[in-house]
Design a protein around this nucleic acid. Structure first.
Length: 361
DNA sequence: AAAACGTGGTA
DNA sequence: TTACCAAGTTT
């Protein structure tokens, strides 16, 4: 008997590629592990997804290990001190994620009996979980047939279909195309496969199209430069802001720190005292902006690039008596500085004033 | 809906 | 060195 020639569905091609070429990641239950009966832990999937928002796999690995070691379950995290969570998150960036992580853990532990909702809608109602993360957790942890669209998938889909609409306007169209492509069987693996494909084959620059399981179907390959997709609106230039930071050391080697407000830039994190960060007005960036009078010595500048502006901080240092107080700050022993909730820009400022302030890096 | 929100790596 | 990029969410 004869059969009509069958064209493999794109999802099957992607899944077959994933079975051979998936990345092994600390939070992932890969196909061989699944074959041994292992199931994903929604807590670990959620934690990894939040950490991975706008953040590289490489950067996340150490933080994921630290968090899961220190707080093995969502209830452990819910019972943690927020300050300890911020300290552990320090350096990873986008600190609203850490504040929402703690709130989300509390909601799951205390309002959902310690069990994550297993639907996209239920997940999306939680703090810090948006469209992408809700779909990803639903698919990966609960095997729901949800359409997972992240930056990787946007790249794959935009090239596969030669989508001319620029992002973010193209998102609904892309989501519909992903939804149509997502299989009822193994939707979680399909989502992870599409992201791995975007991360390792369909890369932003120099994609390895020859190795792509979708190359035969790709509308861009062979016609145009894939690097031109997805189309994106041009980015705006970053303004420069100026400021001053004051690193005070007492005779025991302790450093004066204080806590930033809970919201906004670096919200809830620790800082050294400083001036405001002014938009280009060369205003009070000298010792007059100091938190208390002292023999402030200029010791250079630190440049730090944030998402939407570049900061040039003038650094001042001084040695002062221990009893000096200013507002709600405190003196922190230098040996314990590593454990503080200091964002990178503040570590840079302290290191500029006191090169051996931190144990390494 | 556009802007705010971190950091480190790569070319 | 400048520019872009990385598993986005919130307001």
């Amino acid at each position: 008997m004869t059969q009509a020639p069958r064209i493999a569905a794109p999802a099957d091609l992607v899944l077959a590629w994933y079975d051979r070429h998936h990345r092994d990641l600390p939070w992932r239950v890969s196909p061989p592990m699944a074959a041994r009966g292992e199931r994903p832990d929604p807590y670990r999937i959620w934690l990894s997804e939040v950490m991975l928002q706008q953040t590289t796999v490489q950067a996340v690995k150490a933080y994921f290990a630290l968090f899961t070691s220190r707080w093995p379950t969502v209830t452990d995290l819910a019972r943690a001190e927020t300050e300890d969570v911020m300290k552990s998150w320090a350096g990873l960036g986008y600190y609203a994620r850490a504040r929402n992580l703690k709130k989300c853990a509390e909601a799951v532990a205390f309002e959902h009996g310690g069990v994550f909702p297993d639907s996209e809608d239920g997940l999306k109602a939680l703090p810090g979980i948006g469209d992408y993360t809700a779909a990803a957790i639903a698919a990966i942890a609960f095997n729901r047939r949800s359409a997972v669209l992240d930056g990787n998938v946007e790249r794959v889909i935009s090239r596969l279909h030669a989508i001319e609409t620029p992002l973010p306007a193209a998102k609904p169209e892309m989501r519909a195309l992903v939804a149509a492509m997502t299989p009822a069987d193994r939707p979680g693996d399909f989502a992870q496969a599409m992201m791995d494909l975007g991360a390792t084959i369909c890369t932003p620059r120099r994609p390895a199209c020859a190795l792509c399981p979708l190359n035969a179907a790709c509308r861009v390959l062979g016609r145009e430069d894939p690097e031109l997709y997805p189309r994106k609106a041009a980015k705006k230039a970053k303004p420069v802001r100026l400021g001053a930071a004051f690193v005070a050391e007492d005779e025991t080697g302790a450093i004066f720190l204080r806590k930033r407000g809970e919201t906004g830039l670096l919200g809830g994190m620790t800082e050294v005292p400083g001036s405001g960060w002014t938009a280009r007005i060369d205003g009070e960036t000298g010792p007059a902006a100091a938190p208390f009078a002292a023999d402030w010595q200029a010791c250079g500048t630190v440049t730090h690039v944030f998402t939407h502006f570049e900061l040039r901080l003038s650094i001042y240092r001084s040695t002062v008596p221990h009893h000096v107080q200013a507002g709600d700050g405190w003196w922190q022993a230098k040996e314990t500085l590593d454990g503080e909730a200091l964002p990178t820009v503040m570590k840079k400022a302290i290191r500029q004033a006191i090169p051996d302030a931190f144990s390494r890096r």
